[in-house]
């Protein structure tokens, strides 16, 4: 009996699969949830950011850009289309200003349209004047 069961294993698996539920989902109709700890797009805590540029220095994909005028006046831009979601910026930041969310930026054919300006002090300065 055991011997027969071993030999018929594929047939058993077939019956098992036929009686069980399908494991795939029809995707656009059924929403898929990303896990809690998923590394998605990054977000910046503007209060904590001091514009040191360590994240830009360690980013392997040039996904972050920093335009600096003076020590406190700067603009930090995030390019999701270049981002490798590696988590290096989160690790590089000494003040824990950058964190990953578990959301992904939507797909697009125009990478320019999804650029996020994380912090822009230059504009603030201009409007103050």
């Amino acid at each position: 009996m055991q011997w027969l069961k071993k030999r018929m294993r594929l047939l058993l698996a077939l019956v098992e699969a036929l009686t069980g539920e399908a494991e795939t989902v029809s995707y656009p109709k059924t929403e898929l949830e990303l896990p809690k700890g998923y590394r998605g797009a990054i977000q910046l805590d503007e209060e904590k950011c001091i514009g040191c540029g360590l994240c830009v220095m360690d980013c392997p994909a040039h996904g972050l850009e920093l335009e600096k005028e003076s020590k406190s006046v700067y603009k930090l831009t995030y390019y999701p289309a270049r981002c490798a979601y590696c988590g290096q910026c989160e690790r590089a930041c000494h003040r824990q200003a950058i964190t990953h969310t578990n959301q992904l930026p939507g797909s697009t054919t125009d990478p320019e349209s999804i650029i996020v300006i994380l912090k822009d002090q230059k504009e603030q300065e201009d409007s103050d004047e």
């Binding site: 699969a17 036929l18 399908a22 494991e23 795939t24 989902v25």
Partner: peptide, 11 residues
């Protein structure tokens, strides 16, 4: 459809 169900797909 049967092949898909054997492979645990929707089909």
């Amino acid at each position: 459809k049967l092949q898909a169900r054997f492979q645990r797909r929707v089909g």
